[in-house]
Design a protein around this nucleic acid. Structure first.
Length: 570
RNA sequence: CGGGGUGUAGCUCAGCCUGGCAGAGCGCUUCGUUCGGGACGAAGAGGCCCCCAGUUCAAAUCUGGGCACCCCGACCA
């Protein structure tokens, strides 16, 4: 490809809207142009990168035994109502109407549609297991698109769905998808770690995310430096500090004027935070929920939401708190009625807690579970924080930010039951297929790839992702010798199976070198009178900056060497 | 949806406080000189100053309302 005819505009300065590195370089290198919040146009160069990523994904999915399909992006809304997700997705679901006023959704994901397809094609255990995948445009009316390609409203997702006769078989399909993901991210030059995750609105059981660690990430990840336990904060388990021991004492009411927070009580009464019981109020699908948890802990709203099987969970506002008869600052599970009470085990296991008296400026001492109050539900709703102890080995956990690149999880029979994906087993019994579901965000992968592969001068593409293998800078093209060598080199590269981007523009050498660094092809060749005088063509490794003049007949070999060194196959 | 910020040329931004010809650098076009790390000279093109309303003789500038975009939080690949 000749740059003189390539549609490309690089920018010396990044647009002010771009803050994170991948976004800045994406725009500076002219790979994409924003259209609206969460929507981008991809230029020829940017599109080539996306296609190369898709190629990697296809190859590895195919290798894992998955079969590619293509499903509509436009879905009849009835499909979403059948699984209850028209409701659950809420505003995120883009809706539109056809000319006959039938309502459709723009697919934010494809469990429903793939289940529809499976229901009509899978009949027997002989048809199983099978994994279907596609690379499809997804539409989500996100509350807040952000970070360039990190969070889009329209994006390409590789989504795969496995159908198995039973859970044991699903384990194998899940593992195959997991292994494929490891290879995909490895080839794409995106370092990821698998972490335990919540399965979110889609529902399901075991769930792991492939996280790219970066300060620009949206997710908080808890990592154990000692045993390697890694989990999304919304899912992470941790070991609570032991309760403070003692024998139950009689309940006692004390005046605590103006003391509202746990920190207040700790200072005022001189007790350990672990001796206090914290009260937090929520509205789950509109109904009030009271959560009791030990004072040194915080509530994990995702865990709570899951425990309550609620579609929406929000903090209770002041008016609602009063309406529920609660006293903020002195709220207590003791003597509470008409409100669902959820307790974290930490509030149940200890003795002699300090808790509110449901009366302003008063607290109880020596509150004990079972004697003074009971919960409707006792469940782990603790939020793991930096410094909490690893549930596996007991070492202090650390936190890092990260971006979710891919997600694999075991769905089970949720969709196969509601969408009627059933098969006849060997004994002639009709059973729902056990499903798994596996996604990768393609644009997000591109962003992470830039984030992980750049230096102060620009992008440094891994060879497998680079839009072209070689960037050829031609200087003084008006000189016949240069033009001649360029033609020869281009041909030799092509015959060797390498793609090249040739800078044949009339701009100065400085501009061309700067652009070559910015655009980040793994190898740069410079063809110029100076290089020719020195006996050949200058070959430069973009990553290391190593530069050498190589005789014409050695150029292809040298290119091959650099590409192999920089990233395996190309 | 809550909190914060920004909207002036393709990009980065000044001008706004204190109302009075719409500006700079980079980019773009043409010509010439250049040609190894964002060259130089000359001549040009390019604007709904986000939108609407108000105040005023006069609004990029002041007031009100709206919209868009970005960042932080609640959601997800």
């Amino acid at each position: 490809m000749r740059m003189s005819k390539l549609l490309l505009k690089t920018l010396r300065e990044p647009p002010a809207e771009a803050e994170i590195t991948s976004h800045r370089l994406l725009l500076r290198a002219g790979l994409a142009v924003p259209l609206a919040a969460g929507l981008y146009c991809f230029t020829p160069l940017g599109w080539r990168v996306l296609r190369r990523l898709e190629t990697i994904i296809r190859e590895e999915m195919d290798r894992s035994g998955a079969e590619e399909v293509h499903l509509p992006a436009l879905h009849p809304i009835e499909l979403w109502e059948a699984t209850g997700r028209a409701q659950a997705m809420g505003q995120t679901l883009f809706r539109l109407e056809d000319r006959r006023e039938r309502i459709f959704a723009l697919g934010p994901t494809h469990e429903e549609v793939v289940s529809f397809l499976a229901a009509r094609t899978i009949q027997s255990y002989r048809d199983l297991p099978v994994t279907l995948y596609q690379i499809q445009t997804k539409f989500r009316d996100e509350p807040r698109p952000r970070g360039g390609l990190i969070r889009l409203r329209e994006f390409a997702m590789k989504d795969a769905y496995s159908f198995d006769p039973d859970w044991e078989s699903l384990d194998a399909s899940y593992q195959a998808a997991f292994d494929a993901y490891v290879r995909i991210f490895q080839r794409a030059g995106v370092p990821v770690i698998p972490v335990h995750a919540d399965s979110g609105a889609i529902g399901g059981k075991d769930s792991q995310e492939f996280i790219f660690l970066t300060a620009a990430g949206e997710d908080e990840i808890l990592l154990c430096p000692s045993c390697g336990y890694a989990a999304n904060a919304e899912k992470a388990d941790f070991r609570r500090l032991p309760p403070i021991a003692g024998f139950p004492q009689p309940l006692e009411k004390v005046a605590t004027p103006g003391q509202k927070t746990i920190a207040d009580l700790v200072a005022f009464l001189g007790v350990d935070p672990r001796q206090t019981c914290k009260a937090v109020f929520f509205r789950a699908d509109g109904r009030p929920v009271f959560v009791a948890i030990r004072g040194d802990l915080d509530v994990n709203e995702i865990k709570l939401k899951n425990a309550l099987k609620a579609a929406a969970l929000e903090a209770m506002d002041e008016a609602a708190v009063r309406a529920a008869g609660l006293v903020a600052g002195s709220a207590s599970p003791v003597g509470l009625s008409g409100v669902q009470v959820v307790a974290d085990p930490s509030a149940v296991e200890g003795v002699n807690f300090v808790a509110g008296a449901n009366e302003a400026d008063y607290h109880y001492l020596n509150v004990n579970y079972g004697r003074d109050w009971t919960a409707d539900l006792v469940v782990d709703v603790g939020l793991a924080r930096s410094g909490d102890l690893c549930s596996v080995c007991g070492s202090p956990l650390g936190t890092r930010r990260g971006i979710e690149m891919g997600h694999v999880f075991k769905l089970g029979t949720i969709y196969s039951e509601s969408m009627d994906v059933r098969y006849l087993d060997e004994s002639g019994e009709r059973r729902p297929a056990v499903m798994g579901c596996y996604g990768i965000g393609v644009e997000r992968m591109l962003a992470a790839c830039i984030e992980a592969n750049h230096d102060e001068n620009g992008i440094v593409w891994p060879p497998e992702v680079a839009p072209y293998h070689v960037h050829v800078v031609a200087l003084n093209l008006d000189e016949e010798a240069v033009a001649e060598v360029l033609a020869g080199v281009e041909q030799a590269l092509g015959e060797a199976g390498y793609t090249s981007l040739v800078d044949d523009r009339l701009d100065s050498a400085g501009i061309k070198f700067k652009d070559a660094d910015l655009l980040g092809m793994p190898v740069r060749l410079t063809i110029s009178p100076r290089a020719l005088e020195r006996g050949g063509v200058e070959v430069r490794d973009r990553r290391t900056g190593e530069t050498e003049v190589v005789p014409l007949d050695g150029v292809v070999t040298r290119v091959r060497g650099i590409l192999a060194k920089e990233g395996g196959r190309s």
